[in-house]
Simulated scan of single mutants.
Amino acid sequence: MKHLLLIGIGPGNPRQITLEAIDSLNRADVFFVLDKGAAKDDLLRLRKELLERHVTRPYRLVQVEDPQRDAAAADYVGAVEDWHRQRAALYGRLLHDELAEGQCGAFLLWGEPTLYDSTLRILERVAQPAFSLEVIPGISSVQALAAAHRIALNRIGEPLHILPGRRLADESGIDNVVVMLDGQCAFAELDDPHLHIYWGAYLGTADELLIEGPLMQVKAQILAQREQARARKGWIMDTYLLRRR
């Protein structure tokens, strides 16, 4: 049977890859890499550097163009479903055409494969060829954010909520919320003077940006820094914690 590894490689710092992940890299015969376009060459380059640094056995790299989600679609759920179908068809072709029986393939996934990453759900749609699956956990951007700001994610006796940016407006009574995938900067619409924000972008990398303070005082600074960074690099990965003081 064919075997597939989903390897969490952390949010960007090459030193944050785990020993288990390095061992897993050296089990793979084929690495599947999705090319997201010139604007995100940094993400592709880091994956290749990790392989060059840590893999000591012969391997093959299969690089393919990643299907793009229609970010302007009015039906968000429908657009994501269509994107997942395209990716599932691509993954099925890769497993069929590029991985021989008895071989081990691998995807290198940013952060933690089980937290706001779609690969596991997409692979559920791939019925053929048959393959076994193993997930190697990684450090998430949420952990990296807390470490960079030197804070504990949870407070005593309180829950921690994690949600995507598009759901922030639906959240009532924000007390301790981590927000990911907030391309529309939903935090900027909040006007609660009691909220404190811990924001970070490109966490763990040489380009890391950190801002923290009362939301009403620093949100304009975050918006400006975010726009400048995105214009400079062509992409941005950021996350933040909102906490009621």
Rank of each mutant, 00 (worst) to 15 (best):
E208C: 01
L160T: 09
L209N: 08
P193C: 06
R232I: 08
L168D: 03
A147Y: 07
G200W: 00
D192Q: 04
V177I: 08
P159F: 10
P159G: 11
N176P: 03
G200C: 01
A144H: 06
I222L: 01
S140R: 04
A152T: 15
A144Y: 05
A148W: 05
A186W: 04
R150D: 14
A146T: 08
V178D: 03
L190N: 06
E227K: 12
N176F: 09
E208M: 03
I211L: 11
R230G: 11
A144Q: 12
N176R: 11
I156S: 11
Q184N: 14
V179P: 04
R232L: 12
A148D: 09
R166W: 08
G204K: 02
Y202D: 04
R226W: 08
I156K: 12
A147W: 03
K219Q: 09
E158C: 10
G200M: 00
V218Y: 02
E212R: 08
H194V: 07
I197H: 00
I139E: 07
I156T: 15
A152M: 13
L190E: 02
L215Y: 01
D170W: 06
L153Y: 04
A186S: 05
V179I: 12
D182G: 03
G157S: 06
K233N: 11
D182R: 01
A229R: 01
M216E: 12
Q184C: 10
A206N: 10
L160V: 05
L145R: 03
E208K: 00
I211K: 03
A152E: 14
G173Q: 05
I197R: 01
Y202N: 01
D175E: 15
T205C: 08
A201C: 07
G183L: 11
S172P: 13
S172N: 12
G200L: 05
Q184E: 14
M180D: 02
D191E: 14
A147S: 08
R232K: 15
L215W: 01
D191V: 09
K219C: 06
Q184S: 11
K219V: 02
Q228N: 13
L168N: 02
I222F: 03
V218T: 00
L181V: 12
R167V: 12
Q217W: 05
L160Q: 04
R232M: 11
A146V: 08
P159I: 09
Q217I: 11
Y198C: 09
L153W: 02
A144F: 04
V218F: 01
I211R: 01
R150I: 09
G213Q: 00
A231V: 07
A224H: 14
A144N: 06
Q225P: 10
N176Q: 14
A231G: 15
R155H: 11
R167E: 13
